[in-house]
Amino acid sequence: MTTTTKTTTRLDVPKTYKLFIGGGFPRSESGRVTEVRDGEGRFVANVAKASRKDAREAVRAARKAQPGWAGATAYNRGQVLYRVAEVLEGRKAQFVDELQRTEGLSAARARAQVEEAIDLWVWHAGWTDKIAQVAGSANPVAGPYFNISVPEPTGVVAIVAPQSQGLLGLTSVVAPALVMGNAVVVVPAASSPLVAISLAEVLATSDLPGGVVNVLTGDPAELAPWLASHADVNALDLTGAGDLDWVALEVAAADTLKRVIRPEPGIAPETPQRILALTETKTVWHTKSRM
């Protein structure tokens, strides 16, 4: 190769899409990958295929991160979720491109999905410091006490994300879990792993503490049973598990008294109920003084 010939073609720099666990991007412990191809069968990327041990590590990371996230002020959580929307806005083009390649959408429809997802992050960011006022209460009691009920996060939430509309579906389940301070282990749609990992990159650069969201690309049918039976998972969101044997997953979850969101009828996205489904109510008694 001589310097006199200037080549017009650059070598491709393809990206390997890895998992997102504990704030880092590790390969699958199993070393497995899945090839992603576009509508015409052209190779797009290799995506890590998570194993049960990756799921175990993800739950461990989520458990470690959860108290810190729940302990952050509601205002701060709101800022972070809004920051996710800001960073997503700046990287819109990448998401549009990935959605076009994996979901075969037109540019306009891909763009509409990304914008809807961004708006959904903003919507949830607004709820962090308001949901307690809506769902909490001061209860009348027969005695000289304040009796106050407030929603608190459930803990570690395992999620099977909706299998269509990769980015929007993922946002519609992850964001409501984060509002009150849960930590999340999510298996994104098997058909759109690229946007899931790109969203993870957005989360990693949005001041979301490492481990609060963990993304396991892979086969939901393989991973969901391990998450459903895992004793250190507090809630199971099966919104995207309609095609799996989700009754068996719910049965497995019952062993350790997990809160379960079923795929049917499910809970409508973008509602306060969706946020409150992953909370526990704490009631506090406090003496009233005449002083």
Partner: peptide
């Protein structure tokens, strides 16, 4: 050990 006997991952609550 609990993982081996029950076949599911256990947690610090147990």
């Amino acid at each position: 050990r609990q993982k081996l006997t029950t076949g599911r991952y256990s947690g610090p609550d147990y």
